[in-house]
Simulated scan of single mutants.
Amino acid sequence: MAQDSASGGRPRPPRIVVAPDSFKGSLDAVEVCEVVAEGARRAIPGAVVASVPMADGGEGTLDCFLAALGGQEMVLDVQDPLGRRVPARYALSIDGRSAVVELASASGLPLVADREPDPLRADTTGTGELIADAVENGARDILVTIGGSASTDGGTGLLRALGVRFLDAQGAELPPGGGALARIASIDASGIPDGVREARFRVACDVTNPFIGPKGAAEVFAPQKGASPAQVKELDAALARFADVLAETTGVRVHDLPGAGAAGGVCGGMVALLGAEPARGAELVAETVGLGTALAGADLVVTGEGRVDAQSAGGKVVSVVASMARERGIPVVALAGSVAGPLEPLHAMGLTAVFSLADGPRTLDELTGSADRLLAGLAEQVVRLRFG
């Protein structure tokens, strides 16, 4: 038990903060919190457990926001990446001033899994429609999470839905998609509504790829969206032309900007035309859901994700939680479906220890099917080790 100086040194129940990512394929972050809390209370029935579901800016971020802060889930019919109407959602804060828009909900790759890929045509209009609705509902602080995009359009679909026009040399508006950007000659941003101009935009991205080039949006990510080698070259050239026109129009050069290539260039387009602030996804989520506040007075932090390995140190949830806990002198333990080294970078960031759920030889199906039971049991043992 912890000591409470305010009560003359009498023991007080330990305070445990649970701040995990999802275990993809088995448990979402909210469910992970519930299971870990169950295990912690089995070890110490009076333990005070604060649950802060986390994400790295991709799918699941919206649910983390709703779970941590409450608010209203808004559902809207929008265009999918190929122009069909689909229901999508975003979150509006209780006071209506903030919103979280998850690109994957409106413009994600799974939405077009039933169609032949059309990488030159696919765009992000639906995400822009969600943003426009959030602004109309009064939101002026908008977090856009951009993992899982199905397009390489430089964010033009999103921006078009917010009043921007992309024109060819004859003054005609370009059709949707990144391929058409090869013909862009000018940008007309005069139609952006005042509410959008007044809004603060933050973009949660977990990559540092530039807008164009060998490590850019098209070369790295377009093949995952069905682009052939020839189409990859076509999209990279089109984005290069778009970047040039963006620089001429706004004075903002996104060609080599780290992170500008995220989500097929969405980040770069938003930075140039909306003044968006790019940031690491997990860090933005931590700020948005109030992880720093939740850590005050904590005796132990439990985090985790489906797999903890060397990549986890690159701005993923486990590394962000570990760093924040270290700053406050709090031990932090990660639980994971699987663990693979080297883990020294994570320990240097503040991670005290990491444990795998696997309690013996198991198939992946067995492990994911038993994740809740295994996770609760492991959490119980960790808490017993720390406070027993």
Rank of each mutant, 00 (worst) to 15 (best):
G138E: 12
R140D: 12
R140S: 14
D141V: 10
D141T: 12
D141Q: 14
D141R: 15
L143G: 00
L143P: 00
L143T: 01
V144F: 02
I146R: 00
I146S: 01
I146V: 15
I146F: 02
G147A: 00
S149I: 08
S151T: 13
T152E: 02
T152S: 08
T152V: 12
D153G: 00
G155V: 03
G155W: 02
G155I: 04
T156G: 10
T156L: 11
T156C: 12
G157K: 09
G157H: 08
R160Y: 03
R160I: 07
R160C: 06
L162P: 01
V164M: 09
R165G: 00
F166I: 06
D168P: 03
D168H: 10
D168N: 15
D168F: 12
A169I: 14
A169R: 15
Q170W: 07
G171K: 12
E173W: 12
E173I: 11
L174S: 11
L174N: 13
L174T: 11
P175A: 13
P175W: 13
P176G: 11
G177A: 11
G178Y: 02
G179T: 08
L181V: 10
L181S: 09
L181D: 08
A182D: 08
A182W: 13
R183Q: 15
R183M: 08
A185H: 10
A185M: 04
S186D: 09
S186L: 06
S186Y: 07
D188I: 04
A189C: 13
S190V: 06
I192N: 06
P193W: 08
V196I: 15
V196C: 07
V196T: 13
R197C: 05
E198C: 10
E198G: 08
E198Q: 15
A199S: 15
R200P: 00
F201I: 03
F201W: 06
F201Q: 00
V203F: 03
V203K: 01
V203G: 01
A204F: 05
A204H: 04
A204N: 02
C205Y: 07
C205L: 12
C205P: 07
C205R: 06
D206K: 02
V207P: 01
T208Q: 12
T208C: 06
N209C: 14
